[in-house]
Design a protein around this nucleic acid. Sequence first.
DNA 1: TCGTGATGTAAGTAAGTACTTGCAATTATG
DNA 2: CATAATTGCAAGTACTTACTTACATCACGA
Lengths: 203, 203
Amino acid sequence: MARTQPESDTRERILCAALKLFAEMGYAGACTKEIAREAGVAEVTLFRHFVSKDKLLEEVMSRFTFVSVMPQLLAEIAALPCEEALTTLAGRFIDYLVLRKDWVRIMQAEMQRAPAKLFTVYHAFLDDLLGGFVACFRQLQQRGCLGDFDLEQGARMFHGICFNYFNQEELQGRKNYKSTDRELVIREFVRIFLYGTCSRRSE
Amino acid sequence: MARTQPESDTRERILCAALKLFAEMGYAGACTKEIAREAGVAEVTLFRHFVSKDKLLEEVMSRFTFVSVMPQLLAEIAALPCEEALTTLAGRFIDYLVLRKDWVRIMQAEMQRAPAKLFTVYHAFLDDLLGGFVACFRQLQQRGCLGDFDLEQGARMFHGICFNYFNQEELQGRKNYKSTDRELVIREFVRIFLYGTCSRRSE
DNA sequence: TCGTGATGTAAGTAAGTACTTGCAATTATG
DNA sequence: CATAATTGCAAGTACTTACTTACATCACGA
């Protein structure tokens, strides 16, 4: 049957299904028959919208590419006391990663053998994240509530802890293996980070 | 031709080839013909040694399973000054991960759809790492050169930074995208960590 | 010299996968 | 009402993959 929905609805459903199954089973492990089934369409319909499976992957990664959340986070923490600003930053960043879990997972799995383009997109994504943390720390320094330290290294450290938390809990399923108190983890590392960066140049 | 080498040599070569290609292409993406070619054997030989492709994966993950390096690291840092102990700990831990890069990559990719056994093995591996860091920090506390802080959270923080460094530089290929001064990264995060944990209970 | 163990070559089976073609059905639109 | 757009169904092609069978070859030990 036809015209029960705009063509674009069908494309969106196929893209969402592909995102999900490429993330769960990998590119090679996700067959087009399964993707079509997950999208609720016939396999032949998938090939009416996308020239090939390779093209489908390309379009999935373009369609769901990251949009920088860092400017928004910068605005969110602007009026908060320092420690609360950092805990909020960490929490919202982890939330952002959780929303993009499938994209990140596909990127990590397929980037190696994908065209150089995906590789570059992923590392631009990481650059954006690190740059965003640098901007946040600079703002906090200017308010006088962060010490004088190497912002690049501090950003890398902060990002590393958050991303690894996300990686283990969400991508590696550690939350299904052993429960973790997310608030405690964030609170403690933020405190160590604050103390560690506040007293940096005093010697 | 035959008997040019012991049977066990052939098995080892197949297991090494499988480790490499499962890591590079994923389980579904690495076909048995390619694995055999990489091992320098005929495909039929692969199936003389391993009942099936699934069994091959199981044996790869058993054969190359992690051996805890944490007791050795504990011994290594025992006689070092605190800051040097922590930088050495971080460096040696990253080296250990780099050596097991293929195993970690396969685990991260295949654990989701693999039997629960792989899932448990991987998280036991993470437990071992975290426990090892806790033991190291406790030793340093007992020597009086680390502050009084939540060892579990500190271990998670320390591990997170190192593992994420490894993940990005080695697994995600960031070292091929932008060069990173590993010594600077380690030195700076250890200093922030030291300052952060030394002044924890003083308030 | 012969038997054994281990592997290679060649050819194959069964199933799965990416993708295509032809025709039918339904709905929206002019 | 006719047409166009979109999708489903069915059947298919070409190729790939996991795995098997039969026979040949070679090294080694008794």
